[in-house]
């Protein structure tokens, strides 16, 4: 009954299987056969019905779409990670800089105001000086015109060129 040659693996000189053991083995074979036969006649068809869809469903899942989904998911993760890193860096920068800006802004505005005042003052000084210079230039021009009104310009040019 038992055709499994592994059963005959015995050391040389070792007695063969006890006939009583063989009888028990044979009885167990029949018990196993009885258990297999006791399965409902529709066992296979029910198994097929319940697992067929599962097999087809699993088989229908192709690798590339899964890889694509994983890939796009991976890119989404990378973008999200980059945003998170930038946000963290920004937050850290703000945290480090946050006490200074209030003072800095105030001092910057004050300095800017001072600069503007200085520029305005300088401009006013410049404007004042420029006007004086214009008046002086105007006066010099007038004096020069009066002093040179009687002079021969050709003689003057000749003298200058010499």
């Amino acid at each position: 009954m038992n055709h499994d040659t592994t059963n005959q693996l015995r050391l040389s000189g070792e007695p063969g299987p006890d006939p009583a053991d063989r009888a028990v083995e044979s009885a167990l074979d029949q018990l196993g056969q009885a258990e297999r036969s006791s399965a409902p006649p529709t066992l296979e068809s029910r198994l097929l019905a319940s697992t067929q869809a599962l097999l087809a469903k699993s088989g229908a899942v192709e690798a590339p779409p899964v890889i694509a989904r994983v890939s796009s998911f991976s890119w989404s993760l990378r973008i999200a990670a980059a945003i998170a890193v930038l946000a963290c860096v920004g937050a850290a920068w703000l945290a480090v800089r946050s006490p200074a800006p209030a003072v800095a802004t105030t001092s910057t505005v004050a300095a800017l105001e001072e600069d503007i005042d200085a520029i305005i003052t300088t401009a006013s000084f410049a404007d004042a000086g420029f006007a004086d210079e214009l008046d002086k230039l105007d006066a010099d021009t007038l004096n020069f015109g009066q002093s040179s009104s009687g002079q021969d310009w050709l003689d003057l040019i000749e003298e200058t060129s010499l």
């Binding site: 198994l47 319940s50 697992t51 067929q52 599962l54 097999l55 087809a56 469903k57 699993s58 088989g59």
Partner: peptide, 9 residues
């Protein structure tokens, strides 16, 4: 058999 079908598929 459900496990086997899933794994095979």
């Amino acid at each position: 058999f459900a496990t086997v079908a899933s794994t095979l598929g």
